[in-house]
Structures are given as structure tokens and as C-alpha cells.
């Protein structure tokens, strides 16, 4: 599908808007409900890992989930292809 076709897609633009908005707001709420130390933790982790591996800001994600009586801290570190190890 060429770029031109996107503007002529049969879906109503209001439906597209609603879908994009729902996703956006769910993501905003997720970030809003995260404790504030998480972004600091994420940055410090990034600094440490950067000493050894060449990674970007987006390669480290930290999130906190609550389940009844326990909290789960989830760390996700995406490592680059072999060539970029220091």
C-alpha cells in the first residue's frame, strides 16, 4: 500500500482517532501510576550497563506490577548484536 492509499483507506478517521487515543491514554495511565523512583532506577541501571555494553535509553525498561499481596519489579534489557560489546 502506497502512502497515497493511507489517506484513502476506507476506515473512518474518527475510528482511527479513537483507537489511537485509547492506546495513548492507557500508556499515560501506566506511566502515571509508576512510583517516581523508577525513572531514576532506570537511568542508573543504564549508566552501569553502558560501561560494558553499548545500549540506548530505550533498551532498558523498568516497571512495577502489583498483584494482590506482592509487587513485581520487572527489568528488561535488550542487548545489541555481538559487534557492539565493548
Amino acid at each position: 500500500m502506497g502512502l497515497f492509499d493511507y489517506f484513502h483507506a476506507s476506515r473512518k478517521s474518527s475510528d482511527v482517532a479513537k483507537e489511537r487515543l485509547s492506546i495513548l491514554i492507557a500508556r499515560d495511565h501506566f506511566h502515571r501510576n509508576q512510583p517516581s523512583f523508577l525513572s531514576a532506577l532506570q537511568n542508573e541501571l543504564l549508566e552501569v550497563i553502558k560501561k560494558y555494553v553499548d545500549i540506548d535509553q530505550d533498551d532498558v525498561t523498568v516497571s512495577l506490577d502489583r498483584e494482590e499481596d506482592c509487587e513485581i519489579l520487572e527489568l528488561n534489557i535488550a542487548l545489541p548484536e555481538k559487534g557492539r560489546y565493548k
Partner: peptide, 15 residues
């Protein structure tokens, strides 16, 4: 809204 070019009252209220 009728022509599907604008978010409706219902859409926005749901969100």
C-alpha cells in the same frame, strides 16, 4: 461526527 470525521460525544466520554 455523522460523517466519521470527528470523535463523538460518546467516544470522548468513554475515554
Amino acid at each position: 461526527v455523522k460523517n466519521g470525521e470527528m470523535l463523538s460525544v460518546k467516544d470522548i466520554q468513554e475515554i
